[in-house]
Amino acid sequence: MSARVGVVLFPGSNCEHDAIEAVEALGGKADIVWHGATTLGDVDAVLLPGGFAHGDYLRPGAIARFSPVMEAVRRFAGDAGPVVGICNGFQVLTEAGLLPGALQKNSGLKFMCTTVEVRVESVRSTLTSAASVGDILRIPINHFEGNYTCDPATLARLRSDECVVLRYVDNPNGSIDDIAGICNTAGNVVGLMPHPERASDPLLGSGDGLVLLRSLLNSGGVRR
């Protein structure tokens, strides 16, 4: 049975259809879950897509974390359900406290829209289980606030618990320790700034994001 992914739609999300397209290209099923929903329905995994949830007003993710659906996402994550936040979704997960640290403005103060290389650093997360440590993936980034930061104790814990999932090969935004993506200690909640759904077909310039989304679909299937 193919894994069913709930793609959360906040007012201002804009990558939900790309995510659905990529999930379905891999044989998965995807449903939109409106941010006002209080339950996720029958899903095996949750994906928070990129965009500008609630206009990014105040701070990216600051208002989205109070959307009713986030309580359901929190319960799902607490129940070991796979949750992935891409770009704005990563910002929402940090604001919601489901992942540590914060994403601040890029060090060059430029909105960046380019394809970067990231290295897989840990395969214990729900998004990297089908990849290998050391794999170099070409995946687009598209953000203004992607400069990951956290206090030294958190960084030490991320490193020792193998929670740094992806690192930039050539750091584009000043992110601490070249971090492009992290997971929680359990490995089932992952946030990353690059957009794997935009690297899901050679026609788009790269198919390197597929291995990540395949990991997500597999982990959802395993759970069921």
Partner: peptide, 8 residues
């Protein structure tokens, strides 16, 4: 809880 992100 809302107006600031105490991390930054």
């Amino acid at each position: 809880r809302f107006l600031t992100n105490p991390v930054i």
